[in-house]
Design a protein around this nucleic acid. Structure first.
Lengths: 335, 335
DNA sequence: GGTGAATATTTAAGCGCTTATAATATATAA
DNA sequence: TTATATATTATAAGCGCTTAAATATTCACC
């Protein structure tokens, strides 16, 4: 593989001149520029970003940690990040933690050895774990995309989960529902907690009781939500509406309800959360809380880039506001 | 940031000794090993993979190009690759082409500058385009995960799309359907072509006519498939079953059919292709052709790794066999 | 023609590693 | 005791780049 030296030799100039014409870092005469370019062409020269990075101390690469990129929610956020990377000439090293803390540690180690310029963390495993990894290394610019407490200072960008839960529940109430259930996320995940807190608050404000038979805990996945719903179903009387705390679970619930002979929204109304791309194409189309995942991704990237470029010391905290998307999975009981 | 020199100085040994204890590349006495490890601990030393790679001429990083990682099919394949990367201590640089050839070129350029050890290509933009990019650079071990002709020699790993189309259609026929339509993928995509060819063959073998009113071309996405179905619907008589050439399109079709007042599978049977994770949770659960995306990803990784480790010159071509997954979206007319 | 300023190019050090080779200390045999 | 083999560690070159400093060249002006 040709190096800058080979190019220099062929063009009969010094390596520094080659470097300067390649990077346009200072004036080089027309004649020499041409010679260099010809040599580059001839030798199929491709500069080594490795050597360059070693010298420059930056890699134009970000590392991103995600619980599982297979989940449409994460996938859409990653896409937003990746898009911005492309636009800004960065690359993305993507790692899944698959819910495994050891894997998180290992991946962060590798990313730091590869000297990524920054880190994007969207992995729950992080939260409330001892982050000695970050103490062990020099601090890398980081932005966390999660609602949890991280235990170390960092930029944070997140959806206003509390408000989202509130809006979702209020919408059900506004449609005349009073018997309202909830299939929520894990007890220990801050995002799940906040969405549920919004639910509680809305119920409280409307002077409605929360029937504990109608509250199930699940894990944000299709499969388990279907199971959770069946459990709820077997307890006897059904609520008329359920706030299912993310769209993937809503999909599982709709499927389970259907196979139990329930028609949505006629027998049971469902509202989801996230507005993943496929929500619109569920049957029935899912009414849900929209959070802009693409934006979340882009903003996270921009925040990170800003931190690096401006060497900002302070930590930013950005909240995105969720909005309601009305589709066909909630029945209006007042009509 | 501490370097190997700092560690050496603190441990009062040479850098070469430090390197050897870190990499276990030769015997170092117990005593000195301890001293080195203590210094590493003390200084929070993290070796620079950059410098290491520059010297060693390998990065333990693969680049992967994907049309769009948001598509569940791609996402699942990527996940398989990523899993394997983790297991083998590799990292993945993920790039989306978003259907843009310029972006493909640019990304490949970046990946090669970053000196990835290998390339995984699962991007349609590639096919039949002039791949001067690969001529311009030294050859990088590459595996293509697509049915298309690449125009340059490479390992290839793909699903037997023709057979999949055949199986899907035969299943509809075996269930008593004779009026069968197809919503297929783009004319110019080899995968789409092969799936459709399987459809044609099955129809032919069963002496069934293909009604051109019942064949629509779409683009493997929800949105457009919904539109395509509506077009088909407006033409008059409906088929009793449709082979929809991937699951995402099937989701769009089911949704569209529903909003037109059609019940699936009672009024219309649908079979999909891919068996993406959410297929089971569609309403009704989607009968489809399973191709092992996770396997596809893992095999692609393994093939690439093998190519590198064994310096294999010849090109491998692996076909994965699709299988039928029976669920609830196809009605048996014979009962 | 000689001078200094401005312009254009080269030299060489260094980024943080690995590793072939050299050097040194220690053990063994003659 | 000396020569030789063995075990352990150090020296130094080089991977492919960037860039400060040094050098060479051009040119205006007296």
């Amino acid at each position: 593989m040709a190096t800058i030296k080979d190019v220099a030799k062929h063009a009969q100039v010094s390596t520094s001149t080659v470097s300067h014409v390649l990077n346009k870092t200072r004036y080089v005469s027309e004649e020499i520029t041409e010679k260099v370019k010809a040599a580059v062409e001839l030798l199929n020269y491709t500069p080594s970003a490795l050597a360059r990075s070693l010298k420059l101390k930056n890699t134009r690469t970000f590392g991103m940690l995600v619980t599982t990129s297979i989940n449409p929610f994460f996938a859409e956020v990653v896409k937003g990040v990746e898009r911005r990377c492309y636009e800004q000439g960065y690359n993305l090293l993507l790692c899944n933690t698959e819910g495994n803390f050891e894997r998180l540690r290992f991946n962060i180690d590798m990313l730091l050895q590869k000297r990524v310029d920054g880190l994007l963390l969207m992995s729950d495993e992080l939260v409330n774990q001892n982050i000695d990894i970050f103490e062990r290394h020099d601090p890398v610019p980081t932005v966390v995309m999660d609602n949890g407490d991280t235990g170390f200072p960092t930029d944070k960008i997140q959806d206003n989960a509390y408000k989202g839960g509130l809006i979702a529940t209020q919408y059900l109430i506004d449609n005349g529902h009073t018997k309202i259930g909830c299939i929520r996320g894990p007890i220990d995940k801050p995002t799940a907690k906040k969405r549920y807190a919004g639910f509680e608050q809305a119920m409280h404000e409307a002077n409605l009781n929360i029937n504990s038979d109608w509250v199930e805990i699940s894990n944000f996945e299709c499969e388990d939500a279907a199971i959770a719903f069946k459990k709820l179903y077997q307890k006897g009387e059904l609520p008329t509406a359920i706030f299912v705390c993310n769209d993937m679970m809503a999909m599982g619930v709709i499927n389970a309800a259907n196979s139990l002979g329930l028609s949505i929204p006629d027998d049971l109304s469902i509202i989801g959360y996230d507005d993943i791309k496929i929500a619109r194409y569920m049957t029935p189309s899912l009414t849900t809380i929209h959070q802009s995942k693409f934006n979340l991704g882009q903003q996270a990237f921009d925040t990170l880039l800003d931190k690096i470029q401006t060497k900002r010391e302070s930590d930013l905290e950005i909240q995105l506001e969720p909005t309601l998307v009305e589709r066909s999975s909630v029945k209006n009981l007042l009509l």
